[in-house]
């Protein structure tokens, strides 16, 4: 369970085009589970990433970018590394 229910991030990079462009701001809801199709923010090697959930498995979530030219299927991340589900784009 994360300390804060919501977090705010600014998107960098083009792997989530067209839905999420560089410079877009997103808000995540952190007190929720994620499902296939959700866009999530997760932490890996002290960096935050934004990707879409492709598959879910107990303990693991497989994520990938929407823009396949820019993002390869990067495989699964641990559920515990997921910060939250993107609920608002502005």
């Amino acid at each position: 369970m994360k300390l804060f229910p919501v977090s705010m991030f600014v998107v960098r990079g083009k792997s989530m085009i067209p839905d999420y462009k560089p410079g877009d701001y997103v808000i995540t809801f952190n007190w929720t589970d994620v499902r296939a199709g959700d866009v999530v923010i997760f932490k890996l090697n002290e960096k935050n990433y934004i990707k879409r959930v492709r598959k879910t498995l107990k303990g693991l979530v497989e994520v990938a970018g929407d823009n396949e030219k820019e993002s390869s299927k990067i495989g699964p991340v641990k559920r515990s590394d997921i910060i939250g589900r993107v609920v608002l784009l502005y």
Binding site: S7, M8, F9, V10, V11, R12, G13, K14, S15, M16, Y20, P22, Y25, V26, I41, L44, N45, K47, N48, Y49, I50, K51, G65, K69, E70, S71, S72, K73, I74, G75, Y90
Partner: peptide, 28 residues
């Protein structure tokens, strides 16, 4: 919103494949 952006440093969420996926090609 501008106020929030100026007051708080909003963290970045990277939308590129900085994770070493090891997938490279030269066709493009």
């Amino acid at each position: 919103m501008k106020f929030f952006k100026e007051i708080f440093k909003i963290p970045e969420a990277l939308a590129h494949c900085d994770i070493p996926c090891g997938i490279y090609e030269t066709n493009t």
